[in-house]
Amino acid sequence: MEKNKTNLPLFFLGDRLEFPPIETATEDGLLAVGGDLSSERLLLAYKNGIFPWFNEDALILWWSPDPRMVLFPYKVKISKSMRKIMRCNKFTFTQNLRFEEVVDNCAKVQRKGQEGTWITPKMKLAYLKLFEKGFAKSFEAWQGNQLVGGLYGVDLGNVFCGESMFSTQANASKFAFVKMVEALEKKNYKLIDCQVHTDHLESLGAELISRDAFMEILKG
């Protein structure tokens, strides 16, 4: 799914905190345009299976794709090589220790088929506010005293909505991801929302489910 590569829907958001029914999204999941990135709107979006994703200097685009890429914690795939890395203590793991730094590093990642970054200064500020209010979390991988990998996202209490990850050392982001999954599984989280398909996420055990099935779990 590429941002800004589809016909815009007719629903433009104003100042009211509302979204159209997710069933009205376009074939590739584009639901609405405009609005703002206030904490209230972001939380309303995530609680209803919607997330923002747009290019810099563009209108805010809101998405609700069908199918949805998710990971059930008990289905996480840990390769033999990753198990070895986890046993040898190459990396250490922390939570919420460097949220802003994780976001900054995610913004710098060069992604195939994507020009620039969707993590704009306004987007960063919006998620920092969510973090300050306890609705966003970061998970970090360290090598010594150096931050070498991590990810962040929005925490809905029983579902974690992953936003982005980065790695400056081989396997560091995978390590942080697996450790995060293990931590959330212990707290009985139902699933991790990965939003859209990537081969990397699939290799870690993520799978596509229907939007209806995703919403049933999200609202359950």
Score class of each variant (00 low, 15 high):
119 I>F: 04
141 A>W: 00
104 D>W: 14
151 L>S: 11
201 L>K: 02
105 N>S: 12
61 L>K: 02
217 I>S: 03
196 V>I: 14
63 W>G: 09
134 G>E: 06
28 D>N: 09
26 T>I: 05
100 E>A: 12
187 K>A: 15
42 L>M: 07
152 Y>E: 06
181 V>T: 06
131 F>P: 00
153 G>K: 13
111 R>T: 02
184 L>I: 06
187 K>H: 14
122 K>F: 05
190 K>I: 08
178 V>E: 01
165 M>T: 02
102 V>P: 04
101 E>L: 12
198 T>Q: 07
12 F>C: 10
71 L>G: 07
42 L>G: 08
101 E>I: 07
146 Q>G: 08
85 I>C: 08
107 A>I: 13
4 N>P: 10
164 S>W: 00
205 G>V: 03
22 I>E: 07
183 A>T: 14
66 D>N: 06
73 P>A: 08
190 K>P: 07
14 G>I: 13
66 D>R: 02
100 E>T: 10
35 G>T: 02
103 V>A: 09
171 N>M: 05
207 E>Y: 10
40 E>Y: 05
48 N>S: 15
90 K>D: 04
171 N>G: 03
102 V>T: 11
146 Q>H: 12
79 S>I: 01
121 P>N: 02
194 C>K: 06
108 K>W: 06
213 A>V: 07
83 R>E: 14
150 G>A: 10
23 E>L: 14
7 N>S: 15
126 A>F: 01
156 L>F: 09
20 P>Q: 00
149 G>M: 00
78 I>C: 10
206 A>R: 05
205 G>F: 01
98 R>M: 15
130 L>H: 13
192 I>Y: 00
66 D>V: 06
204 L>H: 07
219 K>R: 09
118 W>I: 00
76 V>Y: 04
64 S>L: 04
155 D>Q: 06
151 L>T: 07
205 G>W: 02
34 G>W: 06
55 N>K: 11
151 L>I: 11
220 G>E: 04
145 N>Y: 13
50 I>D: 13
183 A>L: 13
219 K>D: 01
124 K>S: 12
81 S>E: 06
176 A>G: 03
62 W>Q: 11
7 N>T: 15
62 W>V: 04
14 G>H: 10
103 V>W: 04
50 I>E: 12
73 P>N: 12
171 N>V: 02
177 F>I: 05
143 Q>T: 13
133 K>T: 08
12 F>A: 11
84 K>M: 00
82 M>D: 04
6 T>A: 09
161 C>D: 11
162 G>L: 13
89 N>R: 15
46 Y>G: 10
196 V>S: 07
132 E>I: 11
14 G>W: 12
105 N>D: 11
4 N>R: 14
58 A>Y: 01
70 V>M: 09
30 L>M: 03
100 E>W: 04
52 P>N: 07
38 S>Y: 01
85 I>F: 04
137 K>S: 09
3 K>G: 10
20 P>L: 02
4 N>V: 09
201 L>P: 03
158 N>A: 15
219 K>I: 13
85 I>E: 08
8 L>T: 14
64 S>T: 13
19 F>L: 07
89 N>I: 06
